[in-house]
């Protein structure tokens, strides 16, 4: 649990950390788009290299990638089985107990796994290198044009940033409640299935209760300090796009073009 880094800001000093949050969000969107362009082996090869280098440039530990894949293993195995049963195209790879395994089934599963992995890497990269406050400002600025059509940009940004801010808190809370219940004999590792279900219930209920309490307290605290969402306010921190930020966005667009071309060629 402690190694769970999703949504946690990691205070390193890197090029990516210094980027403008708006540019980072745009580049992330572009990268996510690129992932869903079916550009075959070469395309995914390029993406894996690019995303891995971004992670490395951010000075993040690559171990988290492996860790974040673990919980999804079950799902992927399940998917693989379904794909093997359903997809009957492409050359036959081999036969298993009179069941033909087609190449496409394996490839489909592989692509989905790679996509998930890349998605996790990209989003983690964004949240780990951007302070929640900066992220909020970035989202707010990017949503601003939508104000014309009555999209509450500031409120959405605030909600997202609060949600992000509380992910680590919730994890800590979960750990604490787990410990408290473990002290009362809940055994999520070695116990029987029935006991485990009861044990999980003993985690979820207190977690819900404390989350609601926390949300209520936060709302009161914000109100007590005069927060009112519709108000126009000035900013202490101003965002400035730099040369490198524009470059990154251009790069993201180019990447998408390359991917599209690749997908059309193959």
């Amino acid at each position: 649990m402690a190694s769970f880094t999703l949504g946690k800001y990691l205070p390193y000093n890197s090029l990516i950390h210094k980027m403008d949050p708006r540019a980072k969000i745009i580049v992330m969107m572009l990268l996510l788009c690129a992932i869903f362009i079916p550009a075959g082996f070469i395309g995914y090869g390029i993406l894996v290299v690019i995303v891995t280098s971004i992670v490395l440039v951010s000075k993040l530990n690559l171990k988290f990638v492996v860790n974040s894949m673990k919980p999804m293993m079950f799902m992927l195995v399940f998917l693989l089985i379904i794909n093997i049963l359903v997809i009957k195209t492409g050359p036959i790879l081999f036969s298993l107990f009179s069941l033909d395994i087609y190449l496409d089934a394996i490839m489909q599963t592989f692509y989905i796994a790679i996509r998930l992995l890349l998605m996790i890497m990209i989003t983690t990269c964004l949240t780990a290198t951007t302070k929640p406050l900066e992220l909020t400002l970035g989202i707010e600025d990017l949503l601003k044009p939508l104000k014309v059509v009555k999209v509450p940009a500031h409120e959405i940004a605030m909600m997202i940033s609060i949600a992000l801010r509380f992910i680590p808190t919730l994890i800590e809370e979960t750990e604490r409640i787990m410990k408290a219940q473990a002290s009362r004999g809940v055994d999520l590792q070695e116990g029987k299935i029935k006991e485990k279900i009861g044990g999980i219930l003993s985690l979820i209920v207190p977690l819900f209760v404390s989350s609601f309490q926390r949300a209520e307290e936060l709302a009161f605290a914000m109100e007590a300090r005069g927060y009112s969402p519709g108000e126009i306010r000035t900013r202490y921190k101003q965002l400035h796009m730099k040369y490198g930020d524009y470059l990154a966005i251009v790069f993201g667009v180019l990447l998408n073009i390359v991917m599209l071309t690749l997908s059309m060629v193959f």
Partner: peptide, 11 residues
């Protein structure tokens, strides 16, 4: 073991 804020464990 009784935790520092044990009231959170009630469910």
């Amino acid at each position: 073991l009784v935790f520092q804020f044990p009231e959170y464990q009630l469910f």
